[in-house]
Simulated assay, not measured.
Amino acid sequence: MDLTELLVLVEQRRREAGRPIVVGVSGYGGSGKSTLARALVDSLPHAVRMRGDDFLDPVRVHRRSPDWDGVERDRLATEVLRPFRGGTPSWFRRYDWDLDRLMDPEPVPRADVMVLDLIGLFHPDLLPLLDLTVWSDVDLDTATERGMARDRAQGNDVDRRWTDVWVPNERDFEQRFAPRQVAEVLVPNP
């Protein structure tokens, strides 16, 4: 599905729901999730983006895990997703990677559509809170090459994390939860 078709689907889903909706964008690290999420938000009226990186545990995300347990799913669901979908005011805390701590609470933004991009998003604990699931469809090897190149360009030497932790985590998560198969929409990102 291309971006134009996806935008039509998001608007249709929003009308059908009759409340704010959450569009979950997932894919492998380096697959273009954030780029796709930004393109959606830039093209949709009354949409906001929630960065999944704000809900990663800074220690656990760098450890081997069969289910990407470095994603703080409970905090994301409780502080953001449930209140947003219910139209209830709420507060959440972003993780600041530079300061290595959770920031002061800030209000969950109000909008008709929230686009959330995150690795390991299509987990059974979060799927019921996503109104539309979109997979940034790039094979794991290509996504890994892109992610490693991006990190190197930003001055981050984390190649060993990619090869020893993140890629094995992706494989385990894929085997256990089949995120590409549970996605309603595949968006090629060649």
Rank of each mutant, 00 (worst) to 15 (best):
L3M: 14
L3Q: 12
T4M: 00
E5R: 12
E5N: 11
E5A: 15
L7N: 06
V8M: 10
V8P: 00
V8R: 15
L9P: 07
Q12V: 00
Q12P: 01
Q12T: 11
R13G: 04
E16C: 00
E16W: 10
R19W: 07
P20C: 08
I21L: 13
G24V: 01
V25P: 03
S26C: 08
G27C: 03
G29A: 15
G30D: 07
S31N: 07
S31K: 02
K33S: 04
S34E: 09
S34D: 12
A37K: 03
A39H: 07
D42N: 15
S43F: 09
L44I: 10
P45T: 11
H46D: 14
H46G: 00
V48M: 07
R51L: 13
G52A: 09
D53R: 10
D54F: 15
F55P: 05
L56W: 03
L56N: 07
R60S: 02
R60T: 01
R64E: 07
D67M: 00
D67P: 06
D69R: 14
G70T: 04
R73P: 03
R73V: 01
D74I: 07
L76N: 10
A77S: 08
A77K: 12
T78G: 15
L81F: 11
R82E: 10
T88H: 13
P89T: 00
S90T: 05
S90W: 10
S90R: 09
W91R: 14
F92L: 08
F92R: 06
R94N: 06
D96Q: 09
W97F: 08
W97G: 10
L99A: 15
D100R: 15
M103D: 14
M103F: 00
D104S: 12
P105K: 04
E106P: 00
R110A: 11
V113M: 09
I119Q: 11
F122S: 00
H123I: 04
D125T: 11
L126P: 03
L127E: 13
L129K: 04
L130D: 01
D131P: 08
L132Q: 11
L132C: 09
L132G: 07
S136E: 06
D137S: 07
V138I: 10
V138S: 12
L140K: 03
D141H: 13
D141Y: 09
T142D: 12
E145M: 13
R146Y: 06
M148V: 15
A149H: 07
A149I: 01
D151G: 00
Q154M: 10
G155E: 13
V158I: 14
D159C: 00
R160N: 12
R160Y: 05
R160Q: 13
W162F: 14
T163W: 11
W166T: 07
V167S: 04
V167T: 13
E170C: 04
R171S: 05
R171G: 00
D172I: 01
F173D: 03
R176Y: 05
F177Q: 13
P179K: 11
A183P: 02
L186S: 15
V187T: 06
N189H: 08
